[in-house]
Design a protein around this nucleic acid. Structure first.
Lengths: 349, 349
DNA sequence: TTGAAAGCGCTAACAC
DNA sequence: GTGTTAGCGCTTTCAA
């Protein structure tokens, strides 16, 4: 039936005077007599035919769509992941679906469950916390899932994690080595995986360096600029001897810098500031922010590749063991730390 | 057939001892005898049934997906749009597909054309430039499209635009009113729509205020932090009398602030800085950045609503005329401008 | 090489 | 209220 709607294989078939099977074959490059090929291709071009991807998905069982779920696209750390994942999925012919979960467990679980609706061929997810429900949902996921973040050893899911314990250690060591002794720590919620690990790294580094842990130098708040501002005001109010502030992410660090500026403390002469994630904010701050690159872009890339590998594997009956990669953190020293300022930007391993 | 695969209406029907039609009805809330309803619901729950959204899309002709295409998710102005669009589409039961076009015309056109593949029920797109090919593609788009940006009067597409001419005017006037006279302008590419309009606003405001246009105070570069740094160094090198820098977006403004800090110029005492877009960067900068809010979140919201309206309308045969809304810019005065510093943050209309 | 036909999973007429 | 059935647009056997 040649309705007024969009052209279908049938429309093309009529116009080219062949069967719909031939149309499909030609359009998918499965051969045909030169004559047939020409006629079909011309008919398709003339009608501006575009295959219905939904019908194709239903038939083929793959949607050619992948999903990325993160807490909030407003956090630049996710932006760099999205950018990377987007590039890779696009290169492989997949579209990218985006989900903001606001770290609401229910939303995260809903995303996991919705994998069963066949809309998406796989998922990359960044859960801030891991509950038993998460593990159960991961176990029973209807499509391949890759987690960006830390998972229990026996979780049956591929994952890429940042080594934020080591990352935090590097930051604190760097501060100690450059002469700081009263190193405050501004952390996000301690019941999140990142918050927990960054705290461990801070403690470990202090211990290794022979510095005691002073609980009054530790603030636990949210992962935002505003929280960073408040926390540093309070820390300095309580203890003016602070000579460095280590922040659990760049947003907190930007807030810290603002509070210090407001109080007339010079960075880094009076107080050094170090952030984490090495997001675009580090290069937006004044002075340029020293930050620990936890490999967000790389984690995004690896996650996307792991996911694509699982999807490919699905066709080939073999099943690789669960993979778990850890990205090595890298301290990027910039002007906000260090005893001397030697230039605009300097990077070390 | 009860295969080992995912449960389908047929699986449920068998288990509940009813027909697939009853299953469909119950699951879609189209009534049924209480007894039937119970049995179907229980069977569905026991099997963990999730409807195949692809099959549903094929049948219903709607994918319940919307697409957002922008230049680069790394620009915070798009982040706030995405966030808003995401929230609205989600509330209406739609998923959001993301596309980064890198402002490549070919990519933008490809997104437009791919609307014909039925994957998406509509598109919000932010083209930086509008070519004749764009207009043609918009005219022939297979699904509703809303453009965020300026379009010719007769373009047959809904659009939301920022009034960046007025926005730029407000910024420049504010600088003049607070006593600035040598107002430099750091712009993005002049052949983009935003670049063009912001330049018009700058010129108009100078003229209105009786200040002459000094071409040596205008720099044209890219919309990035690094470009802002370079441009301001060059401007000040050439003319140290500059007492204000108006930047065509916040990223340029952050760059400007860095260059000024590096050169030991105090902000705002020596040089005032004003940005545009009022992104999260404005609150990440030191001092807090005065910026013109061009309503990115609001444009996102309006665009999403316009799109949903068009989609709804498709069912109801009526066709509303093409809409074109303009969002009123709002100057948000913060510490980086103004003769006096009266607090951390102060907003005016 | 080609065409006829089955069927992916679902919804909605239509008949009972 | 319920079951039977057609069909959304496509790919892919299976025969010819």
């Amino acid at each position: 039936m040649t309705t007024g709607g969009a052209p279908t294989v049938e429309t093309i078939a009529e116009r080219a005077g062949v069967s719909i099977a031939s149309v499909s074959r030609v359009l998918n490059g499965h051969g045909g007599r030169p004559d047939t090929v020409t006629r079909v291709e011309r008919a398709a071009a003339e009608l501006g035919y575009v295959p219905n991807a939904v019908a194709r998905s239903l038939k083929g069982g793959r949607s050619m769509q992948l999903t990325f779920a993160m807490q909030d696209i407003g956090n630049p750390v996710y932006v760099s992941m999205v950018r990377e994942i987007q590039a890779i999925t696009k290169a492989h012919g997949y579209r990218l679906l985006l989900h903001s979960t606001d770290a609401v467990v229910e939303d995260e679980l809903a995303v996991l469950r919705s994998l069963a609706d066949r809309t998406s061929d796989g998922l990359v997810i960044c859960p801030l916390r891991i509950t038993p429900e998460h593990l159960e949902a991961l176990r029973t996921a209807a499509q391949p899932v890759v987690v960006i973040g830390s998972l229990p050893e026996d979780a049956p899911v591929d994952s890429v994690r940042a080594d934020s314990v080591t990352g935090a250690e590097k930051a604190v060591r760097h501060l100690v080595e450059t002469g700081r002794r009263r190193i405050a720590f501004v952390n996000g919620p301690a019941d999140t995986v990142p918050g927990h690990n960054r705290q461990r790294g801070y403690r470990r580094a202090l211990a290794d360096c022979g510095l005691g842990l002073d609980p009054s130098l530790v603030a636990t708040t949210d992962f935002t600029i505003e929280a960073g501002v408040r926390a540093v005001h309070e820390l300095l109010e309580a203890d003016p001897s602070v000579d460095a502030v280590f922040c659990a992410n760049d947003q907190l660090a930007l807030g810290a810098a603002q509070a210090l500026h407001t109080r007339g403390r010079r960075i880094p002469e009076d107080v050094a500031v170090v952030g984490m994630d090495d997001t675009s904010l580090a290069r937006a701050s004044w002075p340029l922010l020293t930050s620990v690159d936890l490999g967000s872009a790389e984690r995004g890339r690896i996650a996307a590749e792991m996911l694509l590998a699982r999807i490919t594997e699905r066709d080939s009956s073999s099943r690789a063991p669960v993979r778990s990669e850890t990205v090595t953190p890298r301290l990027v020293v910039r002007a906000s730390s260090g005893p001397v300022r030697r230039g605009a930007e300097e990077e070390t391993r």
